[in-house]
């Protein structure tokens, strides 16, 4: 109906289009970056745990990077949760708030310490979030090991 009226108004020259765009590209959200950062957390944990104790500068750098990557996971998920997730999505996926909170808590655990199981859990939770996200877009997903270390299973959209 809107399209019909709009086209008619456009043809008759009655219509004016006014932009109402945001600073960031409107409507562009993707869970890819969150997964990338979550997998990076695990990779950095592996490198930290494998590094010799005498390489303390390397270890310090790895820890700092791990914390940064975990914080980026939190940021990416927060943006999707805060800007993209709306009441119809919450209605369909009632666990979305709890899942988001779990991601925040687990990412914080990854920052606090260097337990690989926390990193693995973070990847798994972000995978779960990604599955829901792509389902809201009507995009089918697949799950397979990422083609680089730590080769953990990650959710990909089948585009």
């Amino acid at each position: 109906m809107t399209n019909m009226i709009t086209k008619l108004a456009e043809k008759t020259g009655l219509l004016v289009t006014a932009k109402a765009h945001c600073d960031v590209p409107c409507g562009i959200y993707d869970t890819g970056p969150a997964l990338y950062h979550a997998v990076s957390v695990v990779r950095l944990m592996d490198q930290f745990l494998a590094a010799d104790d005498s390489a303390f500068l390397t270890k310090a750098r790895l820890v700092a990077n791990k914390e940064e990557q975990a914080e980026k996971v939190k940021h990416e998920i927060r943006v999707i949760w805060g800007d993209y997730v709306k009441p119809p999505i919450v209605e369909k996926y009632p666990n979305i708030h709890e899942l988001t909170h779990s991601i925040m808590m687990t990412a914080s655990k990854c920052k606090q310490d260097c337990h690989r199981e926390d990193g693995e859990k973070l990847v798994e939770l972000v995978n779960e979030f990604a599955e829901i996200f792509w389902a809201t877009k009507g995009v089918e997903t697949g799950k397979g090991p990422c083609p680089y270390e730590p080769k953990l299973p990650v959710v990909y959209p089948k585009l």
Binding site: T6, L14, L15, T17, A18, A20, H21, C22, C26, G27
Partner: peptide
């Protein structure tokens, strides 16, 4: 185009949130 000071406007974008969602005719 304006008629009697009235303009028909198609909103393109999300920055007006729920007040004037994308593709609102106003």
């Amino acid at each position: 185009m304006r008629l009697f000071g009235i303009t028909l406007v198609l909103v393109d974008g999300e920055s007006m949130g729920h007040l004037l969602p994308h593709r609102t005719l106003a």
